[in-house]
Computed example of a mutant assay.
Amino acid sequence: MTAIAWIYVVGLMALTEPSVVAGLMTFLLYCVIPLSILFYLTGSGRRKRKAARIAEMNARAVANAPASTTADDKTKTADT
């Protein structure tokens, strides 16, 4: 919610700039770049939890997988 308010405030600041280039620079430097850094930093915990969840699911899949065939079994089936 705070990010939306910040986008609104910076958007109004950009509209009051004397040129389009100055308005775009204001919006980029005061809004887009800081908010992207903020979202990246606040999402780091979420990314870590997702990676841990994927690793756990992979470990469960390996543990529940049927036993793989050995090299001897492969040569026996190839010989017949």
Results as ranks from 00 to 15, higher is better:
Pro34Leu: 05
Gly45His: 06
Lys48Leu: 08
Ile4Gln: 11
Asp72His: 10
Arg49Met: 07
Ser19Pro: 03
Ala51Lys: 08
Asp72Ser: 13
Asp79Phe: 09
Ala52Leu: 06
Ala5Asp: 11
Ser68Met: 13
Ala61Glu: 10
Ser36Ile: 03
Ala55Tyr: 03
Leu12Phe: 11
Leu41Asn: 14
Gly43Lys: 01
Arg49His: 04
Ala61Val: 06
Ser68Arg: 15
Tyr40Ile: 06
Met57Glu: 15
Asn58Gln: 15
Ile54Trp: 04
Val9Met: 14
Thr69Cys: 00
Leu24Ala: 10
Thr69Glu: 10
Val10Gln: 07
Met57Val: 10
Met13Asn: 07
Ser19Met: 03
Thr75Ser: 13
Leu15Pro: 01
Asn58Tyr: 11
Leu15Trp: 06
Ile54Leu: 11
Ile33Asn: 02
Val10Glu: 06
Arg47Gln: 05
Ile33Met: 12
Ala3Tyr: 12
Val20Glu: 05
Tyr30Phe: 12
Ala52Glu: 11
Tyr8Asp: 15
Glu56Gly: 08
Ala51Glu: 11
Ala22Glu: 14
Lys48Tyr: 02
Thr69Pro: 03
Pro66Met: 07
Pro66Tyr: 04
Ala67Val: 01
Lys50Trp: 06
Gly23Val: 01
Arg46Gln: 02
Ser36Glu: 05
Met13Leu: 08
Asp79Tyr: 07
Val10Pro: 04
Ala51Arg: 08
Glu56Lys: 09
Tyr40Pro: 00
Thr80Ser: 09
Ala78Trp: 07
Met25Gly: 08
Val62Ile: 14
Leu38Thr: 06
Pro66Ala: 13
Thr69Phe: 06
Ser68Asn: 09
Ser68His: 08
Glu56Met: 06
Leu28Thr: 13
Thr80His: 11
Ala61Trp: 01
Ser19Gln: 04
Gly43Phe: 02
Leu41Val: 07
Thr26Ile: 01
Val21Asp: 14
Ser44Trp: 10
Lys74Pro: 00
Ala78His: 07
Ala67Asp: 09
Pro66Leu: 07
Tyr40Cys: 09
Val62Lys: 13
Ile33Cys: 03
Met1Gln: 09
Tyr40Leu: 14
Thr69Asp: 05
Tyr8Arg: 12
Arg49Ser: 05
Thr70Ile: 02
Ile37Leu: 15
Ala65Met: 05
Val32Ser: 07
Ala55Met: 00
Ile37Met: 13
Arg49Tyr: 01
Ala55Glu: 06
Ala5Val: 00
Thr16Lys: 14
Tyr40Phe: 13
Tyr8Gly: 09
Ala52Gly: 03
Ala3Asn: 14
Val21Trp: 12
Met25Thr: 15
Asn64Arg: 12
Trp6Asp: 12
Lys50Leu: 13
Arg53Phe: 03
Thr80Glu: 14
Tyr8Met: 10
Leu15Glu: 09
Ala5Leu: 08
Ile33His: 02
Ala51Ile: 03
Ala3Lys: 15
Thr2Ala: 15
Ala61Thr: 06
Gly45Val: 05
Gly45Pro: 01
Gly45Met: 09
Ala51Trp: 00
Gly11Pro: 02
Asp73His: 09
Ser68Tyr: 07
Leu29Cys: 08
Phe39Val: 12
Phe39Pro: 00
Val21Lys: 13
Met57Arg: 08
Pro66Asp: 07
Met57Asn: 10
Glu56Gln: 12
